[in-house]
Design a binder for these strands. Structure first.
Lengths: 257, 257
DNA sequence: TCAAAAGTGTTATAAATACACCCATGC
DNA sequence: GCATGGGTGTATTTATAACACTTTTGA
């Protein structure tokens, strides 16, 4: 396990001093690679386990800004629209054993004490387009990588729970938030869009009905028969009509009266 | 403005020592008086402004339990089902002036410093039946009272914002959470239920369609023609079929494909 | 010409929505 | 009898959902 230099430890100590204690932020970022939803996970310098990106809030910083900063520091991804999916702070959310159990953290006691306190964490989620999803590990991290959400069941602490809560929120907000703008590239085909919906909903969707609904809603603008050679019948290329799409989001729920 | 005794101040100091700093919880509790939605607001001993119930989280206490405890301490209401509606912590959420601006708080400096720090607050909401909604002010409070949500625009700090966020969440969760069980008494009439829906949705609803939908869903059990003398045609009494009601909550959203 | 994936159409059912009409009560 | 609020029915439109059929491509 890598050890931190004296300078790095001093730096970390200074950073932690500027933060609100016992409050953390964790981010679940989604992308769609054409087949499945994926999220980035990070591996700190001094640990083997994988976590979702997370950190602490500066005293003079809003929690929203903190989430953006932390995400950028740990993955280099920027310009994301973040939304909360919940705040987690049961009495059992106390991982001092799991954290200090690793004998060779390379941290002095004061830092170990600080990070192994009982924490309340605010969960944020966001979405990034595939082409903007290049990751670069932050200062104190060995590695960052994308994993399928279905493989997110062995993360550090209670991070697997956070991921599944974020997925549920994503699902619930599919019709009320402009998720497509964030997920899809400039141009795409209906079969591609359908696969995204299937990945988010976790179930197959009927092709005919899906197309009908999408086309009737006028959120898609046809821009040509296709781009490349395809193995079978070439799909039609579309792009989002952002204006119509934003208007189409269900601000009002149907009640039947 | 009332002053605290030396003993009370010592007690408060001991309490605060046991709490997570810079993290608070605020509760928005709804009841329905037959006409409008109402929430309880509290007035601390040493302040004139009205706030929604709120407090701090003990080190060894889950945030959910903390919300229940705080609510009980400040209103004596118990056995509520609490849900989060958001966590608030913008950099501007810093009310030291508003808090210490009141010159006669009656607190020593260390306590003023503690409570006028920058706080992140977790918002919880819940519902209580009218007949279970008797309030009793807590130890450090002058008064507790119910106010209409429409009159909640002059609360302390940013509490009016919290209330409006809670109302939005209530609205959004009307079809997915068992709110009726908490709002309605054992027996009620359809016009009464309709008024609740109108209060929550903030708009009139069609009587015919409302009745149809309610009756077709089988969540109501007819228990008699009426109870008392009424001015006009006596409405029919119903009670909730809790089993059917819970099953009827929309766990899956309609997408059209 | 065949498989595979894309694209289109048809139909049955259920839900949403707008109303019109009747009923029971007190005055 | 009539105003008032409670209760019921009907008709139109729209959405959901299942599924059959056609088209285009590469091999």
């Amino acid at each position: 396990m890598a050890q931190f230099t004296k300078e790095t430890i001093a730096l970390i100590r200074e950073e932690l001093k500027k933060c609100i204690p016992q409050l953390s932020i964790n981010c679940v970022i989604f992308r769609f690679d054409g087949e499945a939803l994926q999220i980035p996970v990070v591996q700190p310098m001094n640990a083997d386990a994988w976590s979702i990106p997370g950190g602490y809030v500066y005293q003079k910083e809003g929690i929203h800004d903190a989430a953006k900063r932390i995400l950028f520091e740990q993955t280099q991804m920027d310009n994301l629209i973040l939304s909360q999916f919940g705040t987690f702070g049961s009495a059992e959310r106390e991982f001092s054993k799991e954290i200090s159990g690793h004998t060779n953290l390379g941290f002095p006691k004061d830092i170990i004490d600080w990070i192994s306190q009982r924490f309340v964490t605010i969960g944020y989620y966001s979405i990034v387009q595939l082409k903007k999803s290049k990751l670069k590990p932050g200062l104190f991290f060995k590695e960052v990588k994308w994993i399928d959400i279905n493989d997110a069941d062995k993360l550090a602490l209670d991070h697997s729970v956070l991921v599944s809560e974020a997925v549920q929120t994503l699902r619930a907000e599919l019709q009320s938030r402009p998720l497509l703008s964030s997920f899809m590239p400039e141009t795409f085909t209906l079969p591609e869009l359908q696969k995204l919906y299937e990945a988010i909903l976790g179930r197959p969707v009927d092709r005919g009905n899906f197309r009908q609904r999408m086309l009737k809603s006028n959120i898609l603008i046809k821009i040509g028969p296709t781009r490349e050679k395809t193995k079978n019948r070439p799909p039609i290329l579309y792009r989002l009509d952002h204006k119509v799409y934003l208007d189409s989001l269900t601000h009002d729920i149907k009640y039947g009266f």
